[in-house]
């Protein structure tokens, strides 16, 4: 992998199902180009995509900040939405506040945050009512073994 840090910023639009997932798709393509192993790519893609969908569905859009170095990817997803009153409850599988309209689109099953936790290596969530939510997702890459001569 190339040295240094790659930084990217994405705007996640509100309530736009047509473009939702484009940021995650773009990050996935970058990781493939960098030669990151498939398992880490999938973990990153799924956790970022679920987070992106959450921001589209619940928060009226937001921003994703992505940093990639040789060892890991750090994704920060920030929104200015209504915030999550009870994070422990929101982390439970099956708990959802999504509308029927969202459920008809295949989301809102209450699996988003649990999936993000499952697929990320480090997951932090902070939320303030009326101010928004910040997710920090880290996925580590397998460090390639040095070739012994």
């Amino acid at each position: 992998m190339k040295e240094g840090i790659i930084s990217k910023e994405y705007v996640i639009p509100a309530n736009d199902f047509a473009v939702a997932g484009e940021a995650s798709s773009n990050v996935k393509k970058i990781l493939i180009q960098l030669g990151v192993e498939p398992q880490a790519i999938k973990k990153t893609a799924v956790s970022m995509y679920e987070a992106e969908m959450n921001v589209v569905i619940h928060a009226g859009g937001g921003r994703a900040f992505v940093e990639i170095d040789e060892e890991k990817i750090l994704i920060k997803i920030k929104d200015d939405g209504p915030g999550i009153p009870d994070i422990d409850l929101a982390m439970q599988e099956g708990y959802s506040t999504a509308s029927d309209e969202i459920r008809e689109k295949g989301f809102g099953a209450g699996m988003g945050l649990p999936n993000i936790k499952k697929y990320s290596d480090i997951f932090n969530i902070t939320s303030q009512i009326g101010k928004g939510t910040l997710l920090e997702i880290t996925v580590f890459f397998k460090v390639k073994e040095f070739i012994k001569i």
Binding site: G21, S24, Y49, K105, G106
Partner: peptide, 17 residues
């Protein structure tokens, strides 16, 4: 196999290979 027809089906498939 799905009865859901929208772009997010393809996006989900993309993320899951």
């Amino acid at each position: 196999l799905t009865g859901l027809v929208n772009l997010q089906v393809v996006r989900t498939a993309e993320m899951m290979d």
